[in-house]
């Protein structure tokens, strides 16, 4: 079962669209069974339509710029509130979802671990940092898909290149300033989780220099030991 994790699109406030190559990759109907939006993805009609075409099974958690309720549509007039944390079930995994804007300190592994413990989950998906990350801690898997658009990041800027100033001032001309430096975010990225029973294979897609690169990380859930 494939779960797509997208976060921090910030369309149209800060970005126009996903990279075309991402969209092409994702435009395969009936492949992905569930989509998780980890914040700041609910203000664009075109994005939501695009996601709905990938899979109508969408789970949303609230990012700081999402409204408290989902925008109503013609089909769905009911005002559905967006939770800040929720849990999914897939295979033998319970998956916690949180945009991360109410996690203090922000992006702190121990705080996230406490949250995972509170939610009793094996996998914790979070967002809100515009930076793709995946690690294992205390037998739990932590995944942040980063921003799918590489949108402007108002937090401390992420430095993509090594600072050139020190080594070679000549290379540091004003006109060489990159828009990615201005945005202060990492390159666009998203994650796919392929879950089979107790194995979760994570595919990390990043868009760099006009190309899509894929990384693969496997997380196995250790079976419950002893006691029974």
């Amino acid at each position: 079962m494939l779960i797509l994790a997208l976060s921090d699109a910030h369309i149209p406030d800060r970005a126009i669209d996903l990279p075309a190559k991402f969209k092409k990759l994702l435009s395969v109907p009936n492949k992905i069974s569930q989509v998780v939006l980890l914040g700041n993805c609910t203000k664009s009609y075109t994005l939501l339509k695009f996601i709905n075409d990938i899979s109508p099974n969408i789970t949303i958690v609230r990012g700081e710029f999402d409204n408290t309720h989902l925008p109503t549509t013609k089909k769905n007039r009911a005002k559905e509130s967006i939770p800040i944390t929720t849990v999914l079930k897939q295979g033998n995994f319970k998956i916690g979802c949180c945009s991360g804007y109410t996690v203090v300190p922000k992006n702190d592994p121990l705080s996230l671990l406490a949250l995972a413990r509170q939610l009793d989950v094996d996998v914790m998906l979070w967002g809100g940092t515009q930076n793709v990350e995946a690690y294992t801690l205390e037998n739990k898997f932590f995944v942040n898909p980063g921003s799918c658009t590489g949108a402007f990041n108002s937090d401390w800027p992420i430095i993509n290149d090594e600072e050139l100033t020190v080594n070679n001032p000549d290379q540091n001309k004003p006109e060489d300033l990159k828009s990615s430096d201005v945005n202060g975010s990492n390159v666009p990225s998203f994650c796919l989780l392929d879950i089979q029973d107790s194995v979760c294979t994570l595919y990390i897609y990043i868009y760099i220099d006009g190309e899509v690169k894929v990384d693969r990380v496997v997380f196995k859930k250790e079976s419950q030991t002893g006691q029974d």
Partner: peptide
């Protein structure tokens, strides 16, 4: 698309 320089595309 959001946030890259022209060269990247």
């Amino acid at each position: 698309p959001g946030g890259e320089s022209a060269a990247e595309n």
